[in-house]
Amino acid sequence: MAEGFALWARLRPYRAVLASRARSQASYRANFALDLVSSLLAALVELAEVWVLFHAVTRLGGLEFHQILLVFGLADLAFSLADLAVGHCDNLPTYVRAGTLDVFYLRPQPLLLQLVTSDVTLRRLARAAVGLVALVAGLATSDISWGVGSVALLVVALTSGCATFGAMFVWAGACQFFLIDGAEMTNAFVYGGRYAATQPASVWSRPLKVVFGFFFPMAFTGFLPTLRLLDLPAPPWLPTWLGWCGPLAALWAWAMALLCWRWGVRHYRGGGG
């Protein structure tokens, strides 16, 4: 109990900032409602793409529509939640130009933690809702033998998916310490990664498999857990137990993100590297 209080107190700086961000976004109601609607429409268009695709085919990469919904739902929900919490990190150049980053240096918290907790984007809730609906629809229409294992798999897949996408945003931000107009390049991987993650990895071309299967572990956020959950045969290059390996993928993604962040910060401070 006492430790709980101590932790709560230690989180006070972050709580204060985040609560104020949330309040400020929700306080302009009409504006916030509009933001929610536009965010919702964008998410629906992406879902519609999948649906339209299935007018032409009945199976994609060995999966049927309701199974694809699971892949889409898992990956999109994880992405939206990560985007809500840390999506602002790939906006790093704005922070640098406005001097906000220098201001972070003058405060007694770790730099990255300050950046991550400096904002939330509540309008992404609409996007997350679409992901959640797709996921629930996919779960309801698929033949799943429910038990402790399948629930655990879902929870593991979602949390590690969120963490993986969160790492992608941090990585993208860190790269922009070096790259001029780096957002163009990092967007290709962050948003390209999100798109790839909502598709079955079995249809990816070989370079995509390398990039989004392992380097940026996108297959671990939707496709692999879905195969495991539905007990479907995996493509020959992927064993199905990989469906449980989301946490490893998240660890790898964060290791890469933190390494890039370190380099980036050293570059910014001009300490070599």
Binding site: A9, R12, P13, R15, V17, S20, P108, Q109
Partner: peptide
């Protein structure tokens, strides 16, 4: 001011 007070505990 409230947030900064929190930041400096």
């Amino acid at each position: 001011f409230r947030i900064l007070a929190a930041i400096h505990s």
